[in-house]
Amino acid sequence: MNIKVGIALLTFLLSGAQLAVAQNTQQPRVGSPLGLKDFEMTVRLLSPISTKTSHKGDKFSAQVLTPNGFRNAVIEGHINSVKRAAKQDKAEISFAFETITLSGVAHFIRADLKEVSNSSGVKNVDEEGRAIGKSSKKKAIESAAVASAAGGILGAVLGGGRGAAIGSTTGAVAGLLFAIKFTTSGSDMEFAPGSQFVLDVSDRQQR
């Protein structure tokens, strides 16, 4: 291999590893369960959830408004599936809440949806005033194996075999998530930042 090419490749790999370390240090550390069981929280959406712009795997976040003991904590989740409206087919979007972060510490949760209001405060309709159907059911975590593999890869970069073992353990989470689904007939739907959800939040155990 040409020496200059080798040096350039080595520099690229080292810069990638340094970036991974920097990103890893910025992530919140994982905390122990908070002792939550069907604990009611009202949250305000910080990023949109939409059948027009959201895609499977997209992350979203919401800020806790009540109760005061959790105010300004951030709850994060991901989009499970999206189906855009097409002729007589219903538009559908499914998502799940996964973590709550308090003072830089992330805790694994699951959250069932009790009530939804759009950003104008109108209940059970989206941004355009379209009536929506909503449902939720417990489902097995689909992302645990992927998260475990990603954690293992990062761990290997940071600390060899031992790091890989630590990373893969960190990535896997046990328990069930609530798959929350919104549906509407004839057109796409959107919940803009500022929309509010009332949730029943419970701990979700880490393996």
Rank of each mutant, 00 (worst) to 15 (best):
F60Y: 03
F108R: 04
V74Q: 07
G104D: 05
E76W: 00
K134L: 09
I153C: 01
S50A: 07
S136T: 10
F95L: 03
I153R: 02
K90S: 13
G69I: 04
R71A: 14
K138F: 14
G171V: 01
G155D: 03
T51C: 04
S136G: 13
T170V: 09
G159N: 02
G69F: 01
T51M: 09
K114C: 06
L65V: 07
S119F: 15
E142L: 07
L158C: 10
I141M: 08
I49E: 00
S168C: 05
A145R: 15
N124R: 14
L102F: 11
G167A: 03
D112F: 10
K139Y: 15
S50E: 02
G159I: 05
S120P: 08
V157Q: 07
P48C: 14
I166V: 15
I109K: 05
E115L: 10
V105T: 06
S47R: 07
S168L: 03
A164D: 06
S135G: 11
G57I: 06
T66I: 03
H107P: 04
G77T: 05
S119A: 10
I49P: 00
K137D: 14
G159K: 03
A147N: 15
S136M: 09
S50L: 01
T51G: 03
L46M: 11
I100G: 02
E128S: 08
K52H: 09
A144Q: 11
K123I: 06
G152V: 04
H107A: 08
E142K: 13
A150W: 15
P67L: 01
